[in-house]
Simulated assay, not measured.
Amino acid sequence: MTQISIVKLTPALWRVRFDNQPINLIDSQTVVELRAIVEAAEADPEVAVILFESANPDYFLAHWDLADDGALQASLPPGSTGQHPWLDVLIRISKLPVVTISAIRGRVRGAGSEFVLATDIRFASRERAVLGQFEMATGVVPGAGAPARLPRLVGRGRAIEIMAGAEDFDGDLAERYGYVNRAISDADFQDFITAFAARVARFDRRAIAELKQWVDPLTLPDDAEFPPQLDAFFAAVSRPEVLAHIGRLFDQGLQQPGPVEERLGEYAAQTAEPSEAVS
């Protein structure tokens, strides 16, 4: 593991920490390491809770690394779902017979947002968390599950607002919309997360698995919903106007620490070419 560390606080409670400096981008290596964690959890009869957190207080998972060529992902053997490796990881995380928790401090956008949407519970630091699906500002639709998961969480209108508006949401607004379960003051955040995870991890693992068996079919998207969304994403990112827009963002500092990544929703909108359909 070069990007992700795992500490088994007890047999029932795992703490998984993202640490891909400088801003915790997601790339093919992230997928490889997350798949290894998922496979370990699927095979472990004792784990009951997995807590995901970040070593970087400013970035939980920034977004997908747009410089990643995907070759490492393409070399992976098919996962158990038979889907694209990133989709495979997200689907399997959502269906683990354990409680998965995202402890969000810092920024989580794009594919990072789609990761936390695949976990069971999302807690956000009121002062430090920033969430968003910025893709529409660059001319593409989110491709790894947000159009399928967000409406089930926040409702149709708010889901379209989040994705079409491509703006950043702070912890309080994300809580109000249902994007996260709860926003907690940053001073109390670590203590709350640790206590909650430890509390659930003490419960009967079989009961947790049974709870997920009842809740999942009623709340999770069908696996068939995901591939067309990812196909549309891949088709969109190859369009010249999208590549040009992403290039302008790179010129201003995309994927480096600084104002573009700090306020990506704002910068992505500012660098967009006006639509020809708008007079």
Rank of each mutant, 00 (worst) to 15 (best):
D170N: 15
D172R: 11
A174Y: 00
Y179T: 15
V180S: 05
R182C: 06
R182T: 08
A183Y: 04
I184C: 10
I184E: 08
A187N: 09
D188M: 11
F189S: 00
D191T: 13
T194I: 03
A197R: 02
A198L: 01
V200C: 04
V200Y: 10
A201F: 03
A201E: 04
R205C: 02
L211R: 13
L211G: 08
K212Q: 10
Q213A: 15
V215W: 12
P217D: 13
L218K: 13
T219W: 07
L220E: 14
P221L: 04
P221Y: 01
P221D: 05
D223T: 13
E225K: 06
F226L: 15
F226H: 14
P227H: 05
P228R: 01
P228C: 03
Q229G: 09
D231M: 12
A232Y: 06
A232S: 13
S238E: 14
E241S: 10
L243H: 00
A244W: 07
L249V: 04
Q252S: 07
Q255T: 02
Q256H: 14
G258T: 03
G258D: 11
P259N: 06
V260G: 06
V260Q: 06
V260K: 04
V260Y: 03
E261N: 13
R263E: 13
E266Q: 10
E266I: 00
E266S: 09
Y267M: 05
A269M: 09
T271G: 00
E273H: 10
